[in-house]
Design a protein around this nucleic acid. Structure first.
Length: 566
RNA sequence: GCGCCCGUAGCUCAACUGGACAGAGCAUCGGACUUCGGAUCCGAGGGUUGGGGGUUCAACUCCCUCCGGGCGCGCCA
């Protein structure tokens, strides 16, 4: 519901309550009531529960109180009707002129209208994906990447300054294992007998990296070559691959941060020192521990491993990393994590707070895992065992073939966003492949392409909208068309909720509804946009333009293209 | 065992964060244009929102409990 309308009605309601009290018709103090758009549009444009929340204090039935409020309500110019319904709702219906003015505003302002400015230039850091460079991106990473990027887009659109950030660990055991795996494949490539360690990486891409090393170095690395060489080669190659996949999805990062740099900058040591000063460090079993009990955590957590290397666990740099982000002065720090990280994040947050930082800027969006179904069976995925479907393969498989105006990422992006992040996502590959033309994304894009086509036809027929849109007579629009307009004009509120609650899935669901409204409207012969009556045609074409603008603006938030032709 | 998430139509999911009669898309069955794009539209069937209790004028939504599924409880990330 439009913000201005809501505020206006709230004011008028408060005035009515005041009058009723002055007249002795009500005795209790102003209640906390809400003004919202009813779920069912036939109930009106706005509704309040004021009478119902007053019922108890007044000792009267809600509908009787509603009558009192209505009797004292002096409607402003835009409110056409005030009625009482259901258990005691007071419903308001706006005059058509209100909607006409909103439509004109939408046409004039374009994206500024659809994207409410919430950020005021505040700085937000969105950390997402953050996959360690040990292999190609999998389908699970895809959900993270698309969610994170879309949250970034939502914030950009609504007036935040956004940094997209990728954090990775390159100091630990996993990277050593990666290096070792490359070395083994390298030796094998040279015909030298070598065995992958039990936890080694078995993927084909390791052989590719080893093969490249042979091409460039021959057998010079066969004896005594530093682990560093294999590690760097692997990291470089895998990152190139990850970047490429992200590029295909329309995703680019502004900042990469890694563990080794944090170590070199002494930030890890600083964390340990700070914690030690506060009595939060324990040392036993040869390791350095974060004490759980004083932080309200279930148990102690290792910060520095035992053994001669004195290696930090992943959690220590993560603490340092979050402090680093806080010190860089972001107003909002968003972490996109898989469900398996949630417990760990609590520990990290507790440590950061214990070190004296205000962690309120940090917000976490958790997403549940993606399960993949192929041939009716769940595919179990493991990076190490190389039994995964890569994100690249998925993009290839579900993207339409041939020449198109739209991006190969459209289907994948839309699918990943088409459910709430904290529910499991079941991705049936066969279905996505086979039914690609019936995917919801095509339904929405088709609505846009159809509208574009209408404008092409209108131009052919010499029908053009005036620059001064206010000259168009919107009183010619039918009730059905106004209903369509009302849903359309919801977009700014949908965007607001998506940003505030970090719930991007609202956008694709909204777009599906608008597209459905339009397809239904369009299919009725009586709703022909380009017709004999010039004035009516102009009013309808104008509305069509606003619909097109809303769909395009919504899709842009998702990183999904809005094709003019399909 | 403990913690977090989930359980809504045959399947995959929504439900404006406590509001009115729980809605879409697939799937099934039956229909619709000789002009703006049929990748569309119309209609039908399908529900005790996992079970039970509680709070509230009002519960899919909050609390308790039980059942079922996922994730975590690593000196992996």
């Amino acid at each position: 519901m439009a913000g201005p309308m809501k505020e206006r009605i709230t004011e008028l309601l408060n005035a009515a309550l005041e009058r009723a009290r002055a007249a002795g018709q009500l005795k209790s103090a102003a209640p906390v009531f809400t003004v919202e758009a009813p779920r069912d549009p036939s109930h009106g444009d706005a509704a309040t529960n004021a009478a119902m929340v007053l019922a108890r204090a007044e000792g009267k039935p809600p509908r009787a109180i509603a009558e009192i409020i209505r009797a004292n309500f002096e409607p402003g110019g835009d409110i056409a009707e005030v009625s009482i319904a259901g258990p005691g709702f007071i419903n308001f219906r706006m005059a058509p002129g209100f909607w006409h003015r909103r439509l004109f505003a939408a046409a004039r302002e374009g994206e500024r209208f659809w994207y409410p400015q919430l950020g005021g230039g505040r700085k937000v850091n969105v950390e997402f994906l953050s996959a360690n460079p040990t292999g190609p991106l999998t389908v699970g990473h895809g959900r993270n990447a698309v969610l994170g990027d879309t949250i970034a887009r939502l914030h950009e659109a609504t007036g935040f300054k956004v940094v997209r950030e990728y954090y990775f660990n390159n100091g630990g055991r996993q990277m050593r294992m990666l290096a070792e795996s490359v070395r083994v494949r390298y030796l094998q490539e040279l015909g030298i007998d070598a065995q992958l360690p039990p936890d080694g990486y078995q993927g084909e891409y390791i052989r590719d990296i080893a093969h490249q090393l042979v091409l460039r170095n021959g057998d010079r690395l066969a004896q005594g070559a530093a682990e560093e060489i294999f590690k760097n080669a692997a990291e470089r190659a895998i990152f190139a691959d990850i970047r490429n996949t992200c590029e295909r999805l329309g995703i680019r990062f502004d900042v990469y941060t890694n563990e080794l740099d944090l170590i070199k900058a002494g930030k890890i040591d600083a964390v340990i020192e700070g914690l030690r000063k506060r009595g939060l460090i324990a040392e036993y079993d040869g390791a350095v521990w974060l004490r759980g009990e004083p932080l309200g955590l279930p148990k102690d957590r290792v910060l520095i491993r035992s053994g001669p290397e004195r290696e930090p666990t992943y959690r220590t740099p993560d603490i340092a990393y979050h402090i680093d982000k806080l010190e860089r002065g972001f107003d909002l720090i968003i972490d996109v994590f898989g469900a398996d990280h949630i417990a760990e994040h609590e520990g990290v947050a507790a440590a950061v707070r214990a070190l004296g930082y205000d962690i309120s800027p940090i917000r976490v969006i958790i997403y549940q895992f993606v399960t993949l179904t192929r041939g009716g069976e769940k595919v179990k995925m493991s990076t190490r065992k190389a039994t995964y479907v890569t994100l690249d393969e998925l993009i290839d498989e579900v993207s339409p073939q041939g020449e198109h105006e739209w991006s190969p990422a459209d289907v994948v992006r839309f699918f990943f966003l088409f459910r709430k992040s904290d529910t499991h996502l079941d991705f049936d590959i066969d279905l996505a492949k086979r039914q690609a033309p019936e995917n919801p994304v095509f339904y929405v894009q088709y609505a846009h392409a159809r509208l574009a086509s209408v404008f092409r036809e209108a131009a052919k027929a010499g029908l053009v909208l005036p620059d001064e849109v206010e000259r168009i007579d919107l009183t010619l629009l039918s009730e059905e068309e106004l209903a369509l307009a009302r849903r359309l004009l919801d977009l700014p509120e949908v965007v607001r909720t998506s940003v505030e609650e970090l719930e991007p899935h609202r956008i694709p669901f909204y777009l599906l509804e608008v597209a459905g409204d339009f397809h239904r409207y369009y299919n009725k012969p009586s709703n022909r946009i380009i017709g004999q009556d010039q004035e009516l045609s102009r009013a309808r074409l104008f509305l069509a333009g606003v619909i097109k603008s809303a769909i395009a603006s919504g899709l842009r938030l998702l990183g999904v293209s809005a094709p003019e032709r399909m």
